[in-house]
Amino acid sequence: MAEIGKINILSVVRETENGVYLDGENLGEILMPRKFVTDEVKASEQATVFIYSDSEDRLVATTENPLAMVGEFAFLKVIETNRFGAFLDWGLPKDLLVPMSEQKAKMTEGKTYLVHVFLDEKTNRIAASAKIDKFLDNVPPGYVPGEKVDLLIAEETEIGYKAIVNKQHWGILYKNQVFRPLSPGEKLEGFINKIRDDDKIDLLLEKPGYGKIDPISEKLLETLRENNGFLALNDKTSPEIIQSLLGISKKNFKKAVGNLYKKKRIEFKSDGIKLIG
């Protein structure tokens, strides 16, 4: 079954001056404009296309991929606003509309917003919504600790980073467990740390129990962050200076440095150690 707002592999039905018509199955025949028709399409009689409505609300097929498809979340930039809503640049000739009813607050031209792309089943039009919460946490989280998940960083808060988990749930990455800056819109892999009694999800960037930082190494990391990511300490530093600065023995200092170096958290400089990230 062909789907609007998704990638489909469709068979060529016939060729015209305007392009080729593809078998959209349940959607009927769909035009793929001539500029997308390659020799490979003609030879295989199939095309991998994205289906959406053009400016005249006709279904068309394109080999261009949008920045986000139906069911996905993305940060997109507003390029125009009018009485109907805000229009977003999503990488296709026809801009993506966020109706006024789907805006949390009135959107501003030139700004970037987190939106969810959805299909209006009544009109078969693709639109976007900035009311993210209504598309998340609609089913209980069925994850298990240690499970790998896909994350989209949504925003930074006082306690950490809010992230969208597998396009279905909200989760949180706590600042004391994140060892590099994260940016809204960043996509990365993470792991489930635990599901709390209220079904809230705690996340990690490393698999629980794997590469765990011991307390002494954690203390060294914290001291590095407090000193702009650099400490003028190395193997030649006296035990007294290490004890005074870190409150640990030189032996434990060397163990912590070795541990963090193996985990690629620090790098060695001629005059000390530097935090990575």
Rank of each mutant, 00 (worst) to 15 (best):
G5K: 12
G5N: 06
N8A: 06
S11P: 00
G19S: 04
L22E: 03
L22H: 04
E29Y: 09
M32N: 07
P33D: 07
F36D: 08
F36V: 01
A47V: 02
A47T: 07
I51Q: 12
R58V: 01
P66T: 01
L67D: 04
V70W: 01
G71L: 04
G71D: 02
G71C: 05
E72W: 04
F75M: 12
L76S: 04
E80P: 00
N82S: 08
F84I: 10
L92K: 06
P93W: 06
P93C: 04
L96P: 12
V98N: 02
V98D: 03
M100L: 15
T108A: 12
E109Q: 14
K111M: 11
L114G: 01
L119H: 10
K122C: 00
R125L: 15
L136M: 06
L136G: 04
L136R: 03
N138K: 15
P141N: 13
P145M: 08
I153N: 06
T157L: 08
G160K: 13
I164Q: 05
N166L: 07
G171C: 08
N176L: 11
P181M: 10
L182K: 14
K187L: 03
L188R: 15
L188K: 15
E189M: 03
F191D: 03
I192K: 10
K194F: 01
D199H: 13
K200S: 14
G209Y: 09
K212M: 00
I216G: 09
I216P: 05
L224N: 12
R225A: 14
N227E: 10
G229S: 05
F230Y: 14
L231A: 11
K236Y: 01
T237W: 00
S238G: 00
E240D: 10
E240A: 12
I241D: 02
I242R: 09
L245W: 01
I248E: 08
K250L: 01
K250Q: 14
K255M: 11
V257G: 01
G258H: 10
R265Y: 15
I266A: 08
E267V: 14
F268G: 03
F268H: 13
I273L: 02
I276M: 14
